[in-house]
Design a protein around this nucleic acid. Structure first.
Length: 606
RNA sequence: GGGCCCGUAGCUCAGCUUGGAUAGAGCGGCGCUCUCCUAAUAAAUAAAAACAGGAGAAAGGCGUAGGCCGGGGGUUCAAAUCCCCCCGGGCCCGCCA
């Protein structure tokens, strides 16, 4: 999409190139947003090297020859830099641009690239804890960013209904005699904690669980049906949590369906290729393995032969995952059946793979992103490596592991099995956050609206806390930090939006840019607003929403500063008043757009 | 044995992709910062201040202190940023998932 900042840069490149007698293409990459001025050009550094001259002199020589432009009020040489200052005309153009594009301001050009993003893939036998929530919030935000950046995005959730965890939980349901109470995922998680203890210490229980798992894997029996049902019910409960945070999915792929629908085709295909070889002897005799060499990127491995298919013909986790990814990229013929899983509050339907149902057009992606914890870097890399060896180079390159670090407690890690999640579920966090906000709301509004606002603000505090730092930073969970409503927080940014909204709602006057001179706080703010598209494309490229978190805080801070400096409604000069309304409106648009990319909605008041 | 990630202010973190101007935020510390309205009583009138209650856009704003950017070497006119080595913390290399 046409972007003003790009126009400005091109203009500078042309001006500088003309003055220096060189090619604008050389100049363009040396232009950057500056702290000192508006846009700065570092081109003299480059020329200095080429011509073996003093960059300071080059800068001042270029400056003397530079032509005037409508977009810049001042051009000056500062040491080796050339500083450009926006003219009032440029500032008003930026505002007009934002206001005319509205919710599309900052968006990337529409492409026909289809991205499949898989998250959070929580085991279907326990409630989400804060770590799972980080995954879901990260995936949700990245999905929104990619969409805004012009891609078609499919949100997928992988449900491992055939794992040991579900088998243990199922054993608990059948043998512990407890009656479900409260939220199902929470109750089931507690059963799992109980069974885990027995599983470790009582070999009879362990055998019994193994037996259940075997039946689940075989399929077509009562235990398998029960297991699937248990998993579905648990995910339904988990999705209540998901919905509280505004997170939705398009399709759920169940492990059991992978096994019954594409596993055979996938593993037979792998066996026909050179990527996977059958070990004739040694400790891995009878297994199909990938020979991982040192240039694979993990250095010297203790076990350089990664087993994908066991000697008994079953696949290890990574083996199944390779096959699953063959399907994601449309390499397999067999197709899943789908049924409706549930209707979501955003008026979309989530579908799930199923034994019976209809064929639908999920997957066949041009790229895929997996939001998975950092500890799985190695198996994820194995998938990419297998793809490379299969000759699927393009797919290998577009398969991205979006890894993130764990959320821990000051004294321990979260463990589903040990039950350290009790008291730290995503639900508990949400509940606490909402209560905290509710106490702070001073508005005189009906309780139902108060409830709505506190959910919007409370969840945003949590989302922001989990999105404001880069994903490869560990987070030590502390209530007061996660629920902070001040400083670096979601509510702070939301509050700035609410203020813009309050101002705009108090007048019938139409925002309109009618002045050509802006004061410093106005300039700072407008400059910041102009940068949304740059930030969005960076987040999209790096799959890193935290740049947007930082950016929205900066916008909020700049707006607060502008507002303290320049009154809007009280301003007597009509032209200035209308223009400040336009600045306020533009800020509202930018804040709303950037927060929405973090999965944060803005209330009208709070 | 090897690989990956993290280390920036007291604390939590941006910045590292693509080297460049004085290394930025938040929390915490210290200090500063509003505007308007109000019955009754009293009062010749007016002004100022204090107190009580309420309203607004303060969930705000401003200033200030606080840094051998983990350590060392190298490349470069220039290093938080690139390269190498080391230290501290975490993760990973299973016929588990």
């Amino acid at each position: 999409m046409y972007d003003l900042l790009i126009t400005f840069r091109k203009e500078i490149a042309q001006l500088v190139a003309d003055a220096a007698g060189t090619d604008p293409k050389e100049v363009l990459p040396t232009i950057e947003v500056s702290k000192v001025s508006d846009l700065a050009c570092k081109y003299p550094f480059i020329l200095a090297k080429q011509r073996k001259e003093n960059p300071v002199k080059i800068s001042s020589d270029i400056c003397k020859k530079i032509k005037t432009s409508d977009f810049f009020s001042k051009v000056e040489s500062a040491g080796p830099y050339i500083n450009f200052y926006f003219s009032g005309f440029a500032y008003s153009k930026i505002l007009e641009d934002i206001i005319s594009k509205k919710e599309r301001f900052g968006a990337g050009e529409q492409t026909n690239e289809k991205v499949l993003i898989e998250f959070p893939s929580v085991n279907p036998n326990k409630p989400w804890h804060i770590g799972h929530l980080r995954n879901a919030i990260l995936g949700n935000s990245v999905a929104r960013i990619l969409e805004f950046d012009g891609k078609t995005v499919e949100r997928m959730d992988y449900i491992d209904d055939l794992g040991l965890q579900v088998a243990q939980s199922l054993w608990g349901v059948m043998n512990l005699g407890a009656k479900p109470e409260g939220k199902f995922d929470n109750w089931l998680g507690q059963q799992y904690v109980e069974v885990s203890k027995k599983f470790e210490t009582d070999s009879k229980v362990a055998d019994s669980v193994r037996n259940i798992l075997k039946k689940m894997e075989e399929g077509n029996n009562e235990v398998a049906t029960k297991g699937r049902e248990l998993a579905e019910n648990c995910v339904r409960a988990q999705y209540e949590t998901s919905f509280n945070f505004g997170i939705y999915h398009d399709v759920l792929v169940f492990e059991s369906d992978i096994m019954h629908t594409i596993f055979k085709e996938g593993s037979e295909f792998l066996k026909t290729t050179d990527a996977v070889v059958l070990e004739k002897g040694g400790k891995n005799a009878g297994c199909w393995v990938v020979k991982l060499t040192e240039d694979f990127g993990f250095g010297k491995l203790e076990n350089p032969d990664k087993i994908l298919i066991r000697s008994d013909g079953t696949a290890v986790y990574t083996g199944k995952d390779v096959i699953f990814h063959l399907w994601k990229f449309g390499k397999l013929k067999n197709r899943f059946n789908y049924q409706k899983f549930l209707d979501q509050p955003n008026n979309t339907t989530a579908f799930m793979t199923s034994e019976s149902g209809t064929k639908m057009d999920f997957a066949n992606a041009s790229s895929a992103i997996n939001v998975i914890g950092v500890e799985q870097k190695y198996p994820q890399k194995v998938i990419v490596e297998v793809f490379k060896r299969l000759g699927f180079d393009k797919d290998a390159e577009s398969l991205k592991h979006l890894s993130y670090e764990h959320v821990g407690l000051p004294e321990a890690k979260f463990s589903g099995r040990a039950g350290t999640w009790v008291g730290f579920t995503a639900d508990a966090l949400f509940f606490e956050a909402c209560n905290l906000v509710k106490e702070k709301i001073k508005l005189d509004v009906p309780d139902s609206e108060k409830e709505k606002i506190s959910q919007l603000v409370g969840s945003s505090a949590i989302k922001f806390a989990l999105l404001k730092t880069s994903s490869d930073k560990k987070i030590t969970f502390k209530w007061e930090e996660a629920l902070s409503l001040e400083g670096d927080s979601g509510p702070y940014a939301q509050y700035a939006y609410v203020r813009t909204n309050g101002i705009l709602g108090k007048t019938k006057e139409k925002p309109e840019v009618t002045i050509a001179e802006f004061n410093n706080s106005e300039k700072e703010l407008i400059k910041k607003l102009a940068q949304l598209s740059v930030v969005v494309s960076r987040c999209s490229k790096e799959l890193a929403p935290h740049h947007l978190s930082q950016y929205s805080l900066e916008v909020a801070a700049d707006f607060s500063s502008f507002y303290a400096n320049s009154h809007v409604l009280n301003e007597e000069d009509e032209k200035i008043r209308k223009s400040r309304l336009a600045i306020t409106l533009a800020t509202a648009i930018v804040l709303k757009n950037s927060l929405s990319l973090l999965g944060i909605d803005c209330p009208d008041r709070m």
